[in-house]
Design a protein around this nucleic acid. Sequence first.
RNA 1: GGACCCGUAGCUUAAUUGGAUAGAGCACCUGACUACGGAUCAGGAGGUUGGGGGUUCGAGUCCCUCCGGGUUCACCA
Length: 611
Amino acid sequence: MACLFDHQKQLLPGMEAEKILTAAVQEAMRALYGAELKEEEILIQQTRREFAGDLTVVVFPFLRYSRKSPADTGEELGRYLTGHIGMLSRYEVIKGFLNLSFSMEYWSELLNRLIRSGHHGLGDLDPLNGKVVVEYSSPNTNKPLHLGHIRNNLLGFSISRILEALGSEVVKVNLVNDRGIHICKSMLAWKKSGKGETPASSGKKGDHLVGDYYVLFEQEYRKQVEELKKQGMAEEEARRRAPLIVEAQDMLRRWEEGNEEVRELWAMMNEWVYEGFDETYRALGVDFDRIYYESETYRLGKSLVLEGLEKGILHRRADGSVWADLSEDGLDEKLLLRSDGTSVYMTQDLGTAQQRYEDYRFDRHIYVVGNEQNYHFQVLKLILKKLGYDWADSLYHLSYGMVELPEGKMKSREGTVVDADDLIAGMVDTAREMSKELGKLEGFDPAEIEEILRMIGLGALKYFILKVDPKKNMTFNPRESVDFNGNTGPFIQYTYARIQSVVRKAGETGRTVAAELPGGYVPCEKERDLIRILAGFAATVHEAGREYNPAVLANYLYELSREYNQFYHDHSILGAPDEDTIHYRLLLSVYTGRVIARGMYLLGIDVPPRM
RNA sequence: GGACCCGUAGCUUAAUUGGAUAGAGCACCUGACUACGGAUCAGGAGGUUGGGGGUUCGAGUCCCUCCGGGUUCACCA
């Protein structure tokens, strides 16, 4: 089975140095101590910021060969390496760590190559061939999208772009849960008390309208349950026998029978919801290559289960229900068909996966789904494997943590659910206030200003969510999310806008940005620091893809922006003493801008020309 | 109860997958070129990485244990 990411060292720009160094260390160990080392025994890492150097060789593992102190071993190794590798300019041994520095010329040449290549180093990677299906969003159609969906959408969209940048063919799919009891609840409530209200008649967004009736259903239903309990009925029975739920279930039954009236109502209300969702997706800037509907897939899986039954992989109980026994794998038994022969959720997902494979013959299938379904996906994979589908191994559950509020979890009952549309609008409003205060966009075209404010508001929101490790639960603090200073999206956007401003200024003084760095210029330390980070872009994207973790890239872009702002503060670009320096710094700045733009694109965040 | 996940400064978080003195941002305090954009930059203060034990030259990271929090184990989806 195709494995998209092997864990061998890949040739990365700026990291080819690591490869050369590894070989050189092997040679040095042979020459100095007669030791034959395997590649895995040599640990090379980037030198920590507080020390001088670019790459660090950890010498502790070598002591058993050298039989000398860490200091002496490092010293001997350092002397040998700098003597044999031209691009090394110096070394320093600190407590068992050998820090090596590359010459400024090396860095400058590397930057030149990156600029010439036009792909920011991404083209130097082994391309990640293969087809990847990414399923994300997957909303129910009875309620508008909320904060949790936003995290899901941003993750799915960003990881799609990252994998694409690494060379994969990506298919973004959305599986819309458009049928079931929850939709019937909205339908029933609308039928009973909607008085024909439509999005057009009320001016409400379709998904919100349908959501309101869902809430109404739940309220009325709860009243009925309370009433029955007061009459002495047990809670569980009351919940099952309340007239409203009975009616909703009857509606579901008629839906499944294909009752025309029910189907028509269903189609109409779902259509309202889709129009609403589309608007939210558009505002968020995410899209899909294909949309699946559960109403078209929910019957899948049954034949697959029956097949498994025939082969003796699954078993039938006396009551007729069908089960998978997973006790060998440390799990329980899992129901796949009810005693009346109908499917459950798992059955459906088994079938959907199989159909996906037939549709796309993917090399990998990523499900962006919350971590409350970890168990579900573990079982899904296991059963598919038992059924003999070897592609089961290429299913990957990109499991992300819950989004909580400072007060705790979002609860629809308590009305603390953060609505996606409200949130987006709020962020743009904050950007507007902020911009007005700073007065930077005065005098520009109103439409352009609005576009920029949208970029900033959304940039803040998206970055705030994407910068944290997907696996972790995160706290969404509305107050902090609208902060535009520090480790935020607008900080990175600002850095980009600032660079564009310098370029414009350069144009005003009659300068154009050169295609190549001026030959003889030797960068200073701050410039070298910046180049070093720029050189790490491709490796960072690769890591983000390998780990399915856009946060890696987000934090890289912050780091890069911080470094650039320091450089900017310390050194004048257009006021530099000579033309070579001006052109060097100008092109360095422009290239930084390109990397920021490219990286932000991979996160699904736009960058403004000014802000 | 079984399985899985999480716990890092007041708050939000990072740590190159076992490496150096645990790094940032917010908030708080102090400063910055008569400005190529101050939505910036520099400095200060803030940590027993939930507690305890173990493995290792070396542990936030691996193992055990305890404490605290979460998710899940439905003839629901």
